[in-house]
Computed example of a mutant assay.
Amino acid sequence: MNRDEQVALMRQAFAHIDAGTTDLADAVSFNPVSAYTCPQRLARESALLFRKYPLLLGLSNQIPQPGDHFTDDLSGVPILVARGKDGRARAFHNVCRHRGARVAEGCGRQKNFVCPYHGWTYGLEGELRGIPDQRNFPGLDKAAYGLAPLPLAERHGMLWVQPSVGPEGLEIDAQRFLGELDAEFASFGLAGYHHYETREIRRQLNWKLVIDTFLESYHFSVLHRDSVAPLFHPNLCLFKPFGLHLREVLPRRSLESQRGLPESEWDLIPHHTIVYVLFPNTVFVMQVDHVETWRVYPTPGKVDECTMYLDFHVPNPVDSDSARRHWQRNMDLTIRTVCEEDFPASEGMQRGFASGAQTHATYGRNEPALAYFQRTVAQAVGETTPPGDAA
């Protein structure tokens, strides 16, 4: 984020604090509860959002060396991401071309991928290298039987994969996809971060409700009264849309320490939490001293269940006991806040939506990021009544 943008945001934050205001949407808006409960709506989301768009699957630091790899299945497509001997990251269907078995599990580092069913062997660039008892496959062209590739782009330390091959083939124009956010993410130096830990969390709620909880601070002073609320100015956000994506800046109370300083010395990140939604399903959080990504996926066929990966990325290697204790405390606090406060409340909302008590969820003008996200999703899946059109 460039210096002028940081100063402008801090000016906005001070103005809102002094006036007791926040960024506002143009009007109160409404979202049909069917957005969270309709199986047909979920089917469209799964087919379009989780197949046709680039998904952030991780940061480059998760596969720093040739042979490093990880697998991902939450989009519904078995995906293998690996760094080749040439240093280039690639994505493939995690599917053996012989009989369809998986060729890799989890993450790690290895020289080849060997199918556990019959031993077909693939190189790091996806090429078929070996077939046991090859004489029984006369005429088979090994060059045509490599792992099926998927579009991947590595940019600013981020790994984007599209779970299907679209009209543009294996190309993902990550710069175009990020739009105005491209330069902002370039400034964060993500390539220099280190992966600390990934946690998998499953909850009984629609996948969009997970993202909703990050998109307003209106609930802080009530739901988080005894946890994170004392750290933030409640009901205060700075919101900006970026095409499909959005940014929400949440000022911390420590911002007051900057008031007496000249603007040339103002520092945004230590005194704010910056929340991005990278469409369609990733919440990217720039915290004071680390980066969090929340990658959220629906459970196939279940409107009221989802799985998310919480990834912690930290600025320095975790190579001492004291560092490990520090980051474990941070991770545990994050998990405790969402799993003991946010998600139980959201699971209650999910049951409430299913009860028939109301036809629409209502978003106040002080929840602009939430309304924008839900409207963007609705439009992407062809909903004729996006939030705001009906009460």
Rank of each mutant, 00 (worst) to 15 (best):
P270L: 07
G260M: 07
I131Q: 07
E340K: 15
L56K: 10
N31G: 12
Q40D: 14
V296T: 08
H271G: 01
P151D: 04
M158G: 09
E184F: 10
T337L: 14
H219G: 04
P298T: 02
G106K: 10
W160M: 10
Q287H: 15
F177Q: 10
H16M: 04
A229P: 05
K240T: 10
L150N: 03
K240W: 13
T21E: 08
V77D: 01
H233C: 09
L74R: 15
E184S: 12
S221C: 14
C339A: 11
Y122F: 08
N330K: 15
P149R: 05
N2S: 09
A104H: 00
L236H: 13
Y53T: 11
A143P: 00
R351M: 07
F343G: 03
E305F: 11
F343D: 05
L205I: 03
G382I: 03
R252Y: 08
S60M: 01
D342L: 07
A183I: 03
K52W: 09
S46M: 14
R44N: 05
V249T: 09
E154S: 11
G146N: 06
A35Q: 09
L55C: 05
P262R: 14
R325H: 15
F373L: 10
L178P: 05
L250P: 09
M1E: 13
Q65Y: 09
Y372G: 02
T384M: 08
H16R: 04
T282R: 15
T362I: 13
A361T: 11
F177Y: 15
A357P: 01
A229I: 00
S221F: 13
N330V: 14
Y297Q: 13
L223P: 04
L128H: 06
A27E: 12
G157I: 07
D173F: 02
G67Q: 00
Y53Q: 14
M308D: 08
G179S: 00
G119S: 01
